[in-house]
């Protein structure tokens, strides 16, 4: 018996590792097929007699974008101030406080604005998408769509993806502005420089590429958040508890995926 246990332990570990890997590959494949299907319906829907409608896109845009403006504003303003405090503290020993605007401008546009906005939207809208699709799956609403001759991907996922692709980059641009203003207010107060001198410094520092770097990342985050929400929602099992699990796991997975893709993107874009 004891010998059995000794061999069973590592064997079980290897087995669960193997199963976990298969599951991960499987869900990655499923995610890719959902994304492909969504793009196909967005492009070919009209020709197939099932156009993606503008009404649901607009209402998704309200949910994903407009309603997120207050919280995005609050958090990115704070991030701007925080970066300035850190920057000033870091540069003061070198007597280089005057250069702090450069760091804030680059940090905000290339990294913090898209990252914080992505994480916020994953928490607000990615989870909501997972919950909605999860609930619709267990209450047979997705099956009802199918038997009504309505493709669920076209009806539910395509508007969400389009709304996310429009609103997440837009929110990121807004976040850039707010964080830069937040940083500027603190810096000008601390260093006694005028706001227009700060703006000058930011404008000479920033290139179109820096802003585009952030916006491109946010578009990738938009796809990641939507696809993870849909995959988690549509594979729900086990009733209301399952929907809860899917919601939580969609947030955790989306945030992890955002951070990881961010790193890969930065690596690829800066080398």
């Amino acid at each position: 018996m004891a010998a059995d246990h000794e061999t069973a332990g590592p064997a079980r570990l290897v087995e669960s590792l193997g199963r976990g890997t298969v599951r991960a590959v499987e869900s990655f494949g499923y995610a890719a097929s959902i994304f492909g299907e969504t793009v196909k319906w967005i492009l070919l829907g009209r020709r197939r007699g099932q156009a993606v409608r503008s009404g649901p896109i607009v209402s998704e845009m309200m949910d994903v974008g407009i309603e997120a403006i207050p919280i995005v504003t609050l958090l990115t303003f704070t991030i701007g101030v925080m970066l300035s405090i850190q920057g000033l503290d870091l540069l003061r020993p070198f007597g280089a406080e005057q250069q702090v605007g450069i760091g804030v401008a680059l940090g905000v546009t290339r990294e913090f604005a898209p990252l914080i906005t992505g994480i916020l939207v994953a928490g607000r809208s990615g989870s909501a998408l997972a919950a909605r699709i999860g609930f619709m799956t267990i209450s047979e609403e997705v099956a009802a769509l199918r038997v009504m001759g309505i493709n669920p991907v076209r009806f539910l996922v395509a508007p969400a993806l389009l709304a996310m692709l429009i609103m997440l980059p837009s929110l990121t641009v807004w976040a850039d502005l707010v964080a830069l203003i937040g940083g500027g207010l603190y810096i000008s107060a601390d260093l006694g420089m005028t706001m227009s001198a700060y703006v000058d410094q930011v404008l000479t520092t920033l290139e179109v590429d820096d802003v585009m770097h952030g916006i491109a990342k946010s578009a990738i985050f938009a796809v990641v958040i939507t696809v993870i929400g849909v995959v988690e929602g549509s594979t729900v099992e086990g009733g209301a508890e399952g929907v809860g699990r899917a919601t939580t796991s969609s947030v955790v997975k989306a945030i992890s995926a955002i951070v990881l893709t961010d790193m890969f993107f930065v690596f690829a874009a800066t080398r």
Partner: peptide
């Protein structure tokens, strides 16, 4: 073909 078929699901499956 689904356009010519009606289905009433057990729980109704109305869109909430």
């Amino acid at each position: 073909l689904s356009k010519k078929i009606g289905v009433a699901f057990q729980g109704g499956a109305l869109f909430s």
